[in-house]
Simulated scan of single mutants.
Amino acid sequence: MNPFNSKTGRVVLGGAGWSRQIVTDPTSKPVLETILHALSLGIRAFDTSPYYDPSEILLGAAFSDPALTSLYPRSDLILMTKCGRITSNKFDYSPPAIRASVLRSLARFSTNYLDVVFTHDVEFVSRAEALGAIKTLFEMKDEGLIRHVGISGYPPAFLADIAVEVKETFGRPVDVVQTYCHMNIQNTSLKQSLGRLYGDGGVGVVLNASPLCMGLLRKGGVPIGELGDFHPAPRGLREKAAEAAEWVESRGESMASLSLRFAVGEFARVDEKGFGMTILGGGSIGEIDENVETVKQMLKKGEDGKEDGDLREHTKLNEEIYKADEALFKGVRDILGEWVDYTWESPDAAFLEEQKKLKEQN
């Protein structure tokens, strides 16, 4: 099933911009005002996670505020969160923990249902743990607490494997898959798994998160929050990304804008089902405005579009803009060279070694 439709458009606002991984003091940001501004532009779908501390708490308060609820009915919104990941190296996919996490999220958003709940970074746990957590989410879906069940993680091929096994095991598919850093100007590996996700996996919609590769594909490099430099990109990739950004900026273009245009345009071009959704960052009104205007450059209004200011009207790939950018796209990818389509290990060797030691101790 696909939780998105013409009322939601093709864009989701991600909540990681209000996490300590990204910024130093998320609680100082005007979250309610920023969300209201996003809604005024036509954004109706929002994604967060308890792991993006304190994003879920801040967003939950915003979406529970009378200033918002008086203007936007709950039925007009798509609220998505995750479960299973506790910290950078701690996961709990046990059925009681999954249920408790979802119930806590429901309370934080003051709602009696969530539109999508994902298992967070599913590649970090065993297949049995993953299937057990998904079974619990299916049960909560049957209870009416969740409208759609999803899985999220980094490697698209792994997510496709899980999706196929879920369908074979339970006789029903996961509704939504969210992957990140795999449909952008540096890495387009998601293309190779779309057919299997939609086909054998029966997935309703695929979400493309981190179109700027968690801040790597912009001038200035990766963001540093309270938790320090968490980005897994190796030094060589960082250096080439910085070189590409300088080259783009020297031509009077913004690396962030170009990267987002590529991610949105390329996904719209290759996603034959036309269901793919891009998750935008934007922890401030200024960032949201910039990102929305960039998306509107690459996606033109559909035939029945009425309001130019509403992002939901922009659903069709603008072939002229895409073609005009192709020389810049090629220039960036030429500079990236051997790092094009590079994928880091997830989980990495350090995490696996730590888990091995913990098992030996127990």
Rank of each mutant, 00 (worst) to 15 (best):
P3W: 08
F4V: 01
F4C: 06
T8C: 03
S19E: 09
R20C: 10
Q21W: 15
I22F: 09
I22Q: 08
T24V: 13
D25R: 14
T27Q: 13
T27G: 05
P30N: 07
V31L: 05
V31E: 00
L32R: 13
T34F: 12
L36T: 04
H37C: 05
S40W: 08
L41N: 06
R44N: 05
F46R: 08
Y52D: 02
D53Y: 15
E56W: 10
A62G: 05
F63P: 10
P66I: 04
T69L: 08
Y72D: 00
Y72I: 15
S75G: 02
S75T: 09
L79T: 10
M80F: 00
K82N: 05
K82G: 01
N89A: 13
N89L: 09
P96W: 04
I98E: 04
I98Y: 05
R104E: 13
A107P: 03
F109K: 09
T111F: 06
T119E: 00
H120R: 08
S126P: 06
A130M: 12
G132H: 11
I134G: 03
T136G: 01
L137D: 13
F138C: 01
E143A: 15
E143T: 02
R147D: 12
V149A: 04
Y154R: 03
Y154G: 04
A157N: 11
L159Q: 00
A160R: 03
E165F: 07
K167R: 15
K167C: 01
V174W: 04
V174C: 07
Q178F: 02
T179F: 02
Y180C: 01
C181Y: 01
C181Q: 09
I185Y: 07
N187G: 10
L190K: 05
K191M: 08
Q192R: 12
Q192Y: 15
L194Y: 08
Y198F: 13
D200L: 15
A209G: 11
P211W: 10
L212F: 07
M214H: 10
M214G: 10
L216T: 09
G220I: 11
G221S: 11
D229R: 13
H231V: 01
P234E: 09
R238V: 13
K240D: 07
A242D: 15
E249V: 02
S254T: 10
M255D: 11
S257I: 08
S257F: 03
L258H: 02
F267D: 10
R269C: 04
D271C: 10
M277L: 14
G286I: 04
T294L: 00
Q297E: 15
E303I: 08
D304W: 12
E307F: 15
D310E: 08
H314D: 06
N318T: 08
E319D: 11
A324F: 03
E326L: 13
L328T: 13
G331I: 12
L336W: 01
G337P: 07
G337L: 04
Y342H: 14
T343K: 04
E345V: 11
E345P: 03
L352T: 01
E354I: 03
Q355L: 06
K357N: 12
E360F: 12
Q361M: 14
N362E: 12
